[in-house]
Write a protein that binds this DNA or RNA. Structure first.
Lengths: 219, 219
DNA sequence: TTGTCAATTGTCAGACGCTGACATTAGCCT
DNA sequence: AGGCTAATGTCAGCGTCTGACAATTGACAA
């Protein structure tokens, strides 16, 4: 038997996997509690207790009480940014953004499911929107993300973000549409990943002709 | 001697004036400490102690630690909204917004000075921009204000905010410009009220032709 | 297998934000 | 002057978050 080499399975050693499990469990428990009884009404102690770890351990996984609420969003965003930087340079900015979103949604579906059911993710979305503290963080996070995306777009096109306003404007419009799509999805009854994919697609179709001009050819 | 009616001076009785003085003192002390040593590094106890009141009293004037940082902004906003609702119905939306801002800046200058020096207000502005927690609140406050303004504009024009997107779009553009103007002012060297007034004016000149169409006449 | 090393976790103490309850003080009004 | 009420202080306590140290547990080599 291959006892000496215990399969070097998909992800690292026992330690890594255990950590991942604890983290996922904390997210699941937190979102369940938040959506069940409200964010303010839930204490970090409750979350920790539900996963059977100490409060201190919770704070070693998440910097504060809010962060756990955005853990899934962070996964999606990271996946999106990764995909965006990988898009071929030939694509025009809006197409690159659009493609990146689509790819991100595609393989994030399974990634999310491995942590929490999509339905819980949607409830979380609604919970965030109706909790002032979380709305504030959400807006801040969004503006930071926008800034990073604008930087990437400018880089692709060889522009200076500070000098040329077009990257920021395009990204602002794009993110605005994404935000609306997310909001509509959150309010609707269909919580499948497919539905938000389609929603995004149709919304983006509207701005494509409006702001999707070519930045490089002279015209 | 008119002992019985001790002059019923400018503002209410002794009680009122005393309260106002305590409030102003708290704002001054807080902003001074925040800008001096940083927001996170300042405790509510320090603020209270600087004004020689108990911590409990601070929390009777401000709901939380953040709120005191936005006290001056709130004055400006309140003045602006007041002025906006008072604008003649004949004015088109963008003109009304523009005029309201100008009037608000005019008599807010003196109002601010009575509480804190403008220079401190500017330092506060910068401090907010560089403090994540406060950036978050600031964004949330801004979005709430935008929503209220959009409601007022829709009301003026007899439109339904939910059905017609134009009020929200106009207000978004307007507030976007205001935000940029504020940011530029905060970074610049001139901290006079006159400078932000002019800045705002010139920035607004740029969007007027772009989005300042007539909504009522058929065109 | 066993022992060493390093990472993970638990426990404890404490700072800080914030709130309810109750006593005390101080302006207001007759 | 004296009662009424609003403003303040004091106290106790909950919840978030952090540093320090000890205990546990996986990793890796002898």
């Amino acid at each position: 038997m291959a006892t000496s080499t215990p399969q070097t399975s998909p992800v690292g050693g026992l330690r890594e996997r255990k950590k991942q499990r604890t983290r996922d469990a904390l997210i699941r428990a937190a979102l369940e509690l938040f959506t069940e009884q409200g964010y303010e009404e839930t204490t970090v102690d409750e979350i920790a207790e539900a996963v059977d770890v100490s409060q201190r351990t919770y704070f070693r996984y998440f910097a504060n009480k809010e962060d756990v609420a955005f853990a899934v969003q962070e996964m999606v965003e990271a996946r999106f940014l990764e995909e965006l930087t990988a898009r071929p340079a030939a694509e025009d900015p809006l197409t690159a953004l659009r493609s990146a979103v689509m790819v991100a949604w595609d393989d994030i579906g399974s990634a999310i499911e491995s942590v929490i059911p999509v339905e819980l993710h949607m409830r979380t979305y609604r919970m965030i929107e109706s909790t002032p503290t979380l709305v504030a963080s959400h807006l801040r996070r969004s503006s930071e993300l926008e800034e990073r995306i604008a930087g990437l777009i400018a880089r692709r096109e060889g522009l200076d973000v500070e000098a040329d306003p077009r990257p920021r404007v395009l990204v602002a419009a794009f993110c605005g549409v994404m935000r609306v799509a997310g909001k509509v999805w959150g309010e609707g009854p269909d919580c499948s990943v497919a539905s938000i994919r389609e929603l995004t697609q149709s919304y983006l179709d509207h701005i494509q002709p409006a702001i999707g001009g070519d930045w490089r050819s002279a015209r």
